[in-house]
Amino acid sequence: MGENFFYNYEEVAAILLFGIGFTTLVFHRNLIKKIIGMNIMDTAIYLFLASMGYIDGGTAPIIDGAETYINPIPSGLVLTGIVVSVSVSAIMLALTVRLYGRYHTLNLDYIYMYAQKEHE
């Protein structure tokens, strides 16, 4: 068991980062930090993918006579994931800007409170 953790240290790091990002996204009340947490979570997944596709001693998957290449599919997935993550960050930041402009705070608890007051 312990050996597995040692050999797969990249995956272990990825899962730890995923947990950090996840807890930040759930428990932090500051909107910007929530977005940062989301980005950490996504990045952890990219680390997981990239380390999974890496083959020891392999070069970039462009055929030029090298003996081994790394697996290109995870790299492609990472690129796709980055594009998705950028657009999600953009929309979250847009929402944050709109909320800040209206309530002048980034703390989600206060924002809920003010919105509730506004409604009543």
Binding site: M41, M92, T96, R98, L99, R102
Partner: peptide, 17 residues
């Protein structure tokens, strides 16, 4: 309106998780 934006943030957080 304010409440919809707040709801959208909450919706997005659950969806992103």
């Amino acid at each position: 309106i304010g409440r919809t934006t707040v709801a959208a943030v909450r919706y997005m957080i659950f969806n992103l998780l």
